[in-house]
Amino acid sequence: MRRYFARKLLVYVLTFVFAVTVNWMIPRFMPGDPVSAMISRARVSQPEAVEAMRAYYNELFGFDRPVWEQYLHFWGSLLQGDFGLSIWVFPQPVSSVILGALPYTLALMVPAVLLSWFVGNWLGALAARRKVLDNTVLPAGYLLTAMPYMWIAVLLAWLLGAKAGWFPVSGGYSLDIQPTWTWHFFTDALHHWVLPFLSLFLVALGGWAIGMRNMIIYELEADHSSYLSALGAPQRLIRRYAFRNAVLPQITGLALQLGVLVAGALVTEIVFNYPGLGSLILAAIQNRDFFLLQGTFLFIVIGVLIANFIIDLVYVVVDPRTRTGMAGGR
């Protein structure tokens, strides 16, 4: 058991180092110069002033030092929780910008991922081997899972937002209020949350339902199900056993899908102008804000790694075969 987790942990650490390195590299090798962008924003025309500003910014962000030193320095400050200063909203630290956006993305992602997984599995299990439900859930599932995130987002915004007028189509809260710990703000944020949540939830739902339906049918055809039927066990027991076995690949699927779901959430946020990490990434790219981009990517990588590690733990708990395998087959 300990060796298993040690090995897993090593893989996660290596992935993290690799991700951080790639993350550091990409913005630096992207075309465009952020310092020029900042200077041009300042609209200074005297060459001496421009030179002075360039020197100041280069020193401030460490661009005047060799690349390897920048890399090591990056790691050093990273381990101290220092992601640098944002260029876009200079001089706010990147970490505080990200922490401001993080709750919105989490509030969107966590319920969408978990609820779509639970409801999808439940629907799929219900549909398997029941003619009428199967003929409705399956096509609906294919339709939903085939929809691109932004397309369903636009569709929902048009239908429930613009046409029906039930939900606001933009922002995380109304423009006339400030984020505070009040009931008023909470209900307003919830109102804005519905549409982006729904678009993420619906797309993921279809995939889970189809997967679960297929797995349940496979399990119901398996020998151990036939044996139970031959001994007259009620359908309820047979289905319960089939469900338990069918959930295992769905858990693995959840781990594999997390990255895709994160990407979907980012696109959805941009459609709804939702103030989460997705909108932050867009702003960072538009403003050539390396540090913000790096910081956001890093948070996403850390989030996906943590979620995967949790799924690894859950899998050990629910599948006795991994457990007995680790204990040396005893």
Binding site: H224, S226, G232, Y241, D319
Partner: peptide, 20 residues
């Protein structure tokens, strides 16, 4: 079934649920 007529199946090797 089971009470009066029972079966030892052809597929005994895979007749038991692997996760129970």
């Amino acid at each position: 079934r089971f009470h009066r007529i029972s079966l030892v199946p052809q597929y005994s090797m895979s007749a038991l649920n692997p996760t129970r």
